[in-house]
Each structure stands twice: as structure tokens, then as C-alpha cells.
């Protein structure tokens, strides 16, 4: 479904990604782990081209989506993105946050957009907060609205960039359970995370990155129970 090949990216002469590959099958959940500075977030941001890779190719459903002459706005509707810092629009209520792209990008009329948005908010358990302004919501609720904003566009793949890292510990659970629900419904997901438990339970495949390269990858039992690389073993020891 989503395939990235030999992605290179450098910032100010420092190589952040050194030829990373990533394969995501339909209905698969891929978790990317790694120490900070390993390039995992950059990799995710290259997939919807919030960062422009220096070289390498990306294919979505067999179609090349890297390089020039790609409809970026079209691509980004198909790759939903959730950020560490939520990035809700503070001047719009929860419903407005979800409907903005439906109305302006998908050009839906307001009643249709509202209907889809309410459904998306329902999916994340926040239908009753449709009228709430972001500032009045907890971090966990804000992140769930951000998830609703992304899934309302009916993307082929959801990209999560450390979705729980900015949350107070007691709020992590609600976001994780929302992600689990999406997973159960068969959403294709790529998740950059430090939540090892989520990765172990929900991932079909775990990728471990360090220093801009993929160090190890495999199904969770392989990665967690018998780390195939000393760097990975060291990382797991440090985080758990």
C-alpha cells in the first residue's frame, strides 16, 4: 500500500536519513521506534512530504508520489497525519477543526461536512464536545479531535508522529485506546512512538531506527523478546 525506497534527507549538511526503506501493507500497523535524533519523525514527515526527501522514491498504491509534478494536496488527503503537539486550530471549535478540510478541500456543503465530522468525532468518543473550543479540552481530548480531523478525510493511511509524547501520563490511555479502535477497524497505520506496550500489542511489524538507518525490523515478539541487534537491546533496556 505505502512503500518508501532509499529515502535520504539531510539538514544543514547533517544526514538525518541515510537510505531508509519502509513497506506498509494494507490494514497493517507499523510502529517505528528509536532514540530521539534517530530520524524516525523525519521519515514519517517525508512520507506525506511535509519534509522533502533529498532522494528516494515513495509509492502509494503503486503510484509514484515522490518527485515533482505530484499533486501534494491530493496526496496529503490520502495520508492522515497526527502530530505530537495536536496542532488544533485554536480559533475553531472541535467541529470546525474537523470540517475545515472537508468543506474547503473536498468542497462538501456544510450539512454533509457536519455529518461526516460528527461521525468522526463519535469514533474518537467526543461527539458531545463538538462545540467545544480546543483551549477548553484536555490534551487527550485535543489529540482525539486531531485524530478525528484526519480520519474524517477517509485517508488510505494514517501517520502518527509521537501522538502521546506531549500528554500527561493519565491522558495517554484514552488516545492509545482510540488508536487501538482504529486498528481494529482495519485502518492502515504508521506510528512513531515511545509506547512500547502499544507497539507490542498492536503492531504487525516494528521498525527500529538509529542514526538515520533502519537497524532492525520484524514482528513484535522478534523485536521485543529476542532483539536481533545490540543497539536495539540497549534501547529497549533504557526505555523499559
Amino acid at each position: 500500500m505505502l512503500r518508501a525506497h532509499a529515502i535520504w534527507k539531510s539538514f544543514d549538511g547533517i544526514d538525518v536519513l541515510k537510505g531508509v526503506d519502509l513497506h506498509v501493507q494494507e490494514r497493517e500497523c507499523v510502529c517505528i521506534l528509536g532514540p530521539s535524533g534517530s530520524g524516525k519523525s523525519t521519515m514519517l514527515r517525508c512520507l506525506n512530504r511535509l519534509e522533502e526527501p533529498d532522494s528516494g522514491e515513495i509509492y502509494l498504491d503503486g503510484q509514484k508520489v515522490s518527485g515533482p509534478s505530484v499533486d501534494l494536496n491530493g496526496l496529503r488527503q490520502q495520508l492522515g497525519m497526527v502530530f505530537q503537539s495536536f496542532n488544533l486550530y485554536p480559533h475553531l471549535n472541535a467541529l470546525g477543526n474537523v470540517t475545515l478540510a472537508l468543506r474547503k478541500v473536498k468542497k462538501l456543503a456544510r450539512p454533509e461536512a457536519d455529518e461526516i465530522a460528527i461521525k468522526a468525532l463519535d469514533t474518537v468518543g467526543l461527539r458531545h464536545k463538538a462545540d467545544a473550543m480546543p483551549a477548553t479540552l484536555s490534551g487527550g481530548q485535543q489529540q482525539r479531535v486531531a485524530i478525528a480531523r484526519a480520519i474524517a478525510l477517509n485517508p488510505k493511511v494514517m501517520l502518527f508522529d509521537e501522538p502521546t509524547s506531549a500528554l500527561d501520563p493519565e491522558l495517554v490511555g484514552s488516545v492509545i485506546s482510540t488508536m487501538r479502535d482504529l486498528r481494529t477497524e482495519g485502518m492502515t497505520m504508521v506510528v512513531v512512538t515511545h509506547e512500547l506496550r502499544f507497539a507490542r500489542e498492536a503492531a504487525d511489524k516494528v521498525v527500529f531506527m538509529a542514526d538515520g538507518v533502519e537497524v532492525a525490523k520484524g514482528p513484535p515478539p522478534e523485536i521485543f523478546d529476542a532483539p536481533p541487534h545490540p543497539r536495539l537491546a540497549e534501547f529497549l533496556q533504557q526505555v523499559s
Binding site: L50, R76, Q77, S85, N87, Y89, L100, K104, R149, L153
Partner: peptide
Amino acid sequence: INKGQWEAARSTGLS
């Protein structure tokens, strides 16, 4: 305005 606002908007396909 926080850079994340641009990124959130662009990542939903807004021009």
C-alpha cells in the same frame, strides 16, 4: 503563529 498550524493545515490537503 506556530509552525504546527501550517503543517496541520497542509497535511489535510489545504492549499
